[in-house]
């Protein structure tokens, strides 16, 4: 702050513009870039640089988005998507953490389960949705399974790798205090792995959201994914983009929330 003061030279009171610049700081450029892109979008649509029924002006999208705030289909759809994403995310995360730690610590389990996991891992989740319909139907079971699967891998991989990097001294410390195996896992390995787990969990949030939407597009009766397709067929690109916008805001908010929680709950992250 003092540096800015010096740069402003003789003026003892910083100008209003200066104070805004300081508050926004380096974010200013990011905000400006987004504003410029949106402006280009608006102009390109209004002046007919891009002619397509699926390229409405931004203001029209914003208007559609605002008009939905009073309780439109988008919010209802978003709630349905979030409910699925959250359920699948919870299941996938718990399994990913549990298996990541168990496999990280048990050679027997590693030999038994790792090949299977490695084979399933590269399969893109959307590709398994159609054949899974036979077993899981087209409803929530299918979607939540797909979301869990998509969530599982980053969480598992990060946890598994995190367990491997837990320092041996920490484990030996627990051993010298005659701590049981289960207690060592729960009280030492798990918290020591938490920063790695958190990284996996954060990656998984966006994946869970994406797979929720994709699964709704393939086999949806509700949710944002279904809404997007429905609006395309209903020739309402403004509502479609408005839904995309709500989705983007949700994704951004979830990520921010995650970072805040991370700082709160894992203050030792990056400190060991």
């Amino acid at each position: 702050m003092s540096v800015v003061g010096t740069l402003e030279g003789a003026s003892s009171k910083p100008s209003a513009a200066g104070s805004i610049r300081r508050r926004l700081g380096p974010r200013l450029y990011g905000v400006l870039l987004i504003a410029a892109i949106l402006l280009f979008w608006e102009v390109s649509s209004r002046l007919g640089w891009i002619v397509s029924a699926y390229w409405p002006p931004v203001t029209k999208i914003l208007w559609a988005a605002i008009s939905q705030l009073g309780g439109g289909d988008i919010l209802v759809s978003l709630a349905a998507t979030l409910r699925r994403a959250l359920t699948g995310y919870a299941i996938g995360s718990v399994l990913g953490i549990a298996l990541g730690i168990l496999l990280g610590k048990s050679k027997v389990l590693r030999i038994a389960l790792l090949p299977l996991i490695e084979i399933v891992r590269p399969i893109p989740t959307p590709a398994v949705i159609p054949p899974l319909i036979l077993f899981l139907g087209v409803d929530d079971a299918l979607k939540i399974f797909a979301i869990s699967l998509a969530t599982f891998f980053p969480v598992f991989t990060n946890t598994f790798a995190g367990v491997a990097t837990v320092d041996d001294t920490l484990i030996q410390t627990a051993r010298t205090f005659r701590t049981s195996w289960a207690r060592t896992l729960l009280r030492v390995v798990l918290p020591a792995t938490l920063p790695a787990i958190a990284a996996g969990l954060r990656t998984a949030t966006s994946l869970a959201l994406v797979v929720a939407v994709v699964s709704e597009m393939v086999a949806g009766s509700s949710g944002i994914g279904y809404y997007l397709v429905e609006m395309q067929y209903a020739l309402r690109p403004d509502l479609m983009y408005a839904a995309v916008m709500y989705l983007a805001i949700t994704g951004y908010a979830v990520n921010r929330l995650f970072l805040v929680l991370e700082a709160r709950l894992i203050p030792w992250m990056g400190k060991t």
Partner: peptide, 21 residues
């Protein structure tokens, strides 16, 4: 054989031996 009760180990790498959380 296993760590016996009453025997306590003080590690050189104290930072790695403490629980950061």
């Amino acid at each position: 054989f296993d760590p016996p009760p009453g025997v306590v180990y003080l590690f050189q790498q104290y930072a790695k031996s403490l629980f950061a959380w």
